[in-house]
Design a protein around this nucleic acid. Structure first.
Lengths: 126, 126
DNA sequence: CCAAGACATTGACAAGTATCGATGTATCGC
DNA sequence: GCGATACATCGATACTTGTCAATGTCTTGG
């Protein structure tokens, strides 16, 4: 998925610019973005994972724990049903923000380093 | 929109826990999340605004400029049509990440302080 | 005043996603 | 082995969102 045109050369405006006008439509050089496509996609994936109130709370909850939390304890903190919680946990895990492990009957989740860092970064967001 | 249950009191497990088992299902106290609901919603809105490759590029582009950029120059950097670009600009503006002003025939956009800060914050995201 | 250009808004549509009930799978106590 | 429990997966559904063509609004040059 490419978000930007391959390259945008001169492409001068086909319209005459009045001197009094501010520069526009190809009249000024445009500083190009720098983030590589792959890295940007990763950022978007991580942002998508966090751009949901339930998941953001979920990550905050896990970051707040000294240790891990099992799914039933996580589920008890939200209003959604268990399959929905499981779904959200999967998305957070796929984004690398949390880590999960099954031991016996229970599954335990905890925030990863990336998850902790993201959460702390996000506190200056709003 | 409330993401968490009002309060989650004891709600002990109805199942007997084997001593050898790790604590689970209400056996351990759960550290509660701290971010207020309103602030969390704002964070989610801002995250949603950035959780799209086109918009993330768009913000990066505007942050990279020394000054402002008119819509036709912005449009020329992307593959989407003008109404789509306009749509994305609106979302970024509503999130407080960019600011726009119409002067004469053209509209000029630039990143806000919040936009610049968000972008710099996000560089450590992936 | 009129035609053209820049941009925003609207309406429609396809694709993505949050949610749930139902079901599957593995583990454990008896 | 059997039933119960914890959790994941599946299938369906309602809602959200990215995109475009068509249209509207405002400004400007002639």
């Amino acid at each position: 998925m490419s978000t930007t045109k391959p390259i945008q050369p001169a492409q001068r405006s086909r319209r005459q610019i009045t001197p009094s006008d501010a520069a526009c439509c190809g009249e000024t050089p445009i500083a190009q973005p720098q983030i590589e496509e792959g890295r940007l996609v990763t950022m978007v994936d991580r942002l998508k994972a966090l751009a949901d109130p339930t998941r953001l709370r979920m990550l905050e909850l896990l970051v707040a724990q000294p240790g891990e939390l099992c799914v039933c304890d996580i589920t008890s903190q939200f209003e959604q049903r268990q399959p929905t919680i499981s779904h959200h946990l999967r998305i957070l895990r796929d984004a690398g923000l949390i880590r999960g492990e099954k031991r016996g009957v229970w599954s335990y989740y905890q925030a990863t380093e990336a998850g902790i860092q993201s959460m702390s970064t996000l506190r200056s967001f709003a």
